[in-house]
Design a protein around this nucleic acid. Structure first.
Lengths: 200, 200, 200, 200
DNA sequence: TATGAATGAGTATTCATTCAT
DNA sequence: GATGAATGAATACTCATTCAT
């Protein structure tokens, strides 16, 4: 089998198991059973268990960043209203998290509370999402769409917390909201709730 | 030493360590060193490590519930406006989480992603907060303060996610927002952001 | 059982096994089987396998040093002839190594050729024996008992190599010389061989 | 590449690595990296890791034996004095060990203390050197050059131990004696030290 | 012959829990 | 109640060796 394929196979199995059972309750034994490979094979592709976990999160982070960059280039900033911009931003993020329930799960629940070096990887993701949001709010303030009285940092936390919670509720394993998601409508709703409180 | 005091001492030390290092990176050895007691003593008061963790979260949950019940009895529902009600609700919750950075940390970060029986304890807390919020929203809908078009469940998730994220950012260990918190102002801001999008 | 006794018990079993099978072929499993204790017990007294090995060698080294210091204080330097001094020195060393075949074995054979941090421990022992010998020779040169033409460093290596080889041949496991050793006679012989070549 | 050359290449790399890091700390991975060949290729030429190690020592032993036989044929036993004979014997051995620091190292340090089947290979070498020496001494005794009071076996051990220690000190890796070796002078010194004690 | 991905038996180490004192 | 020495199941990781290509 091609190395790259084998590597991906391990990542896929690990992803599923980490998402279902958490980091510590997922044993290397579980991964090799799931992937139907030998013990040593895992260590041909990853230096240790941490490495698998970190790789999963890093890859997911890269994808998210690529998605955001891509969107930022396409969005017609000149013609779009702040409210439409907000709505689009919510939408693409929901869309992104909807793609992979397991990674959504790992990122939004699992990563947090892990010891040091693992925790920091998922924390970085969260920090980045926050930073992007703060940036957007600053731009809105500069353009006069946002009241100077708004605490931008707090608002970013609220928005991020709300968005990730929604993503997890919709798309995570054991999702709280089980009905098939109408993401267009969800984005409308979320934008509707925040627009009134954020824009002048 | 009085039994009850010894028990509390163990809980206090465990709380600090769980909050700092997470569940798996906190060993019984760490707890007994911190509490300066013998290994076996822990098992006089708790049946196992899980029991300590669960006790911490359950106690915290009980306190939160008591606080909420207490407040519900005192709040002058007849005279208060929906917006003021929202603002007060935010305020008392911020106040609650502000009391204990360690438990705030454990609840909002650590508990999530732990295997089965531990995860479910912190999940229950979260679910309860959600349920209370959904209830309030239903009441608001019934009283005509909220548009029938609002997705109550989604709104509750957004609100809860935002509130907990803010609580963690303000009060958790390694809090993102370091300045001394003016909770009155924070409650105003949060209420301000959500009021516009939620109330008709 | 008293901790110190248990610790010694582990050292004794490990000594025997290391001496018989070498460092790498001695498993922790072998040690606990031999000592009839549980797996974890080893790690209550030693941080790892290396630690046991190093402790054995360090203790042996300490004993040797104490023996040498002790002897140096007692030997009547003023009245003894160089040749008698040499003979005594050989004798006490033979006597020392005769006490413990296993440690003799570990030091003189096993330690050599182990990776880095383990090797250095036994190397230190060897270096010390050499240094003591060089010192003695220098003293002899200063007092006019030794020809200035003698290469002191080389002579020390020859003497040390010969002495340790003899010790190992007499006392090591699988000793080459099996008859019960008459150490007095052996010391006479060794002194006899070296005296002629070393003293003027 | 010619098969024989490939085989030699593996032996050369293994020799260097064994000498530097010891038997257990030298991995097959290290050897193939050093030799820049594929994993499986090693097993085309050697049946396993032991085989490489044993081959190195056996080859070295063969060379030594050839050298000794060669010398025995050339040495003018009829005209040479016992002391000159001793001196020559020391010289050719020093010369032999000087040729290859790595093999000198492996033989004199590494081999010892390895488990069973590996240990015995290097032990055989040592035993052979001893046997040759005992033989020589017996001949000397028979010819009246050596006192009947000398313990031949012990003397052989002393001489061999001294000689090998000197060889290692001069030629082994991390040699204790760093100056460029004047082997003629060294042989004179060693012969000088032993002659007085051995010959009548 | 040469390759290198795959193998899996082997091993040190951890750590929650027990129980005799 | 309190102690802490002893326990042993559990687990990550290693590395010589194989074999299909």
């Amino acid at each position: 089998m091609k190395p790259e394929k084998r590597r991906q196979q391990i990542l896929d199995c690990a992803k599923k198991l980490f998402s279902t059972n958490g980091y510590y309750s997922t044993q290397i034994s579980d991964i090799i059973r799931e992937a139907d490979i030998a013990r040593g094979t895992v260590y041909q592709y990853f230096s240790n268990k941490d490495d698998i976990f970190i790789t999963l999160l890093e890859d997911y982070y890269q994808k998210w960043q690529a998605m955001m960059t891509d969107w930022a280039e396409k969005v017609p900033l000149a013609t779009i209203s702040p409210r439409e911009y907000l709505r689009e931003r919510i939408f693409i993020n929901l869309q992104f998290f909807a793609q992979d329930a397991d990674l959504c799960n790992i990122l939004l629940r699992m990563g947090l509370g892990l010891p040091g070096h693992l925790d920091s990887v998922s924390r970085r993701f969260e920090e980045r999402i926050l930073a992007v949001t703060v940036n957007d709010l600053k731009l809105g303030l500069h353009n006069g769409h946002i009241s100077p009285k708004l605490d931008l940092n707090l608002a970013a936390h609220l928005f991020t917390g709300a968005l990730l919670q929604a993503a997890y509720a919709y798309f995570g394993r054991n999702a709280d909201i089980q009905e098939p998601v109408d993401m267009e409508r969800a984005a409308d709703q979320i934008a509707g709730i925040f627009a009134g409180g954020i824009f002048v």
